[in-house]
Design a protein around this nucleic acid. Sequence first.
DNA 1: TTTAGATTGATAGTAATACTATTATTTTTG
DNA 2: CAAAAATAATAGTATTACTATCAATCTAAA
Lengths: 222, 222
Amino acid sequence: MQNAVLQIQVQDTLYVKDPTSSTIGKSILGHGLILLSEIGLEEFTFKKLAHKISSTESTIYRYFENKHQFLSYLFNFYWAWMDVNIAFAITNIDCPKERLKRIIRVLTQKVNNDIRTPFIDEEILQEVIALESSKTFLSKKVDEENKAGYFLQYKKLVDRISLIVVEINPTYAYPNALVSTILESSFHQRYFGIHLPRLTNEMHVQERLEDFLTDLCFKTLL
Amino acid sequence: MQNAVLQIQVQDTLYVKDPTSSTIGKSILGHGLILLSEIGLEEFTFKKLAHKISSTESTIYRYFENKHQFLSYLFNFYWAWMDVNIAFAITNIDCPKERLKRIIRVLTQKVNNDIRTPFIDEEILQEVIALESSKTFLSKKVDEENKAGYFLQYKKLVDRISLIVVEINPTYAYPNALVSTILESSFHQRYFGIHLPRLTNEMHVQERLEDFLTDLCFKTLL
DNA sequence: TTTAGATTGATAGTAATACTATTATTTTTG
DNA sequence: CAAAAATAATAGTATTACTATCAATCTAAA
């Protein structure tokens, strides 16, 4: 068994200088993520982060244009990492139904820190993405950022899962819509379960969320 | 036919001073909404709005604590208004399936300005809510704001529609989750259709969005 | 009709944010 | 070891997100 390092690649439009290329860059990623999870995007500033890592604002600005770009980097990192996870979960599974089931399981599971990515704690990343990811695309700059590849990893994953949906039911008219609905729901329903329970039905319980989404998918497709 | 004025009531925790109680308050609502639709929440400031309505920041602060509260006001206004619309759309309809169908139609339709609310243009409001509404609850202050009633109208509507879902299928375990998923999707899928088409399947076309959500609901429930 | 009370406008001010720029110092690497 | 690159330290600007004060105006009750 090798001591593998998992290289997650994101678009070079998502940084000024590649944060994985230096110690301080990795520190920005790791501690930036932690700070984000602690205080949320609105309160998050590069100044606070600089203080946390005993560095300066100007250094952080050499890696990321602004906090929105930093969030988008994490967003892409998360989905690229999820893509790897999902690919692993369905290798050697031929039946597309079983593959979709396993994907939904992976999507609704609470993740654990992946030691193959030393500077990012995926458990924290998942929390941050649940709360903040919608803010990456709900912006007036969405078209511009889309052109710059800010959503590439997410779109790739939706495409990949949609292909499986098409395998299950080639006549279904809305595979991508179904998949992106499932992905969005997997975050929002869990969040509602914790914070706005009246909007959902105990979706903070992993098995229920998994069952809800699996049921929704398969009833729709079969 | 009377020249009816539709009074939409929101929680008094959503303002410092009721904006509908004065001319300048209504101007803040109306022009604030327009400014929001023009530049988005991130760029929106009370200073810019004050300039637009030839008033001052201090005056606006007498009505709303900050722009987040202003957005939450609009959020509740929208769903309270939608509630009225939906109630109207299903009066005298006994069949719960038909009622749900009609609700989905209302939810996926592009709305027109309602002249019974003179200071708010619902067409613009719908655009703003589509882009910004998730930001009302995706915040570290969600629990605090939930207690203060920031999401009451939305929760009420979800409850109301869930009751119909239960009528259609009393054994279905996730009525509220299904309803909130439909509501969230009705905005996000349309948005994806316009800005991130790879995430969906032409959901900017109203009939397709309606069909997608109707199909999703009824296949899940029947 | 006066007058007190409430509302708005004008102005000022503060701490924080979101940067940019410059230069000195340290670290890396060839 | 020298040159180049990266980082730290410092300063500075325009804007944001407010709060405070006080004068002007408008409004409603005695």
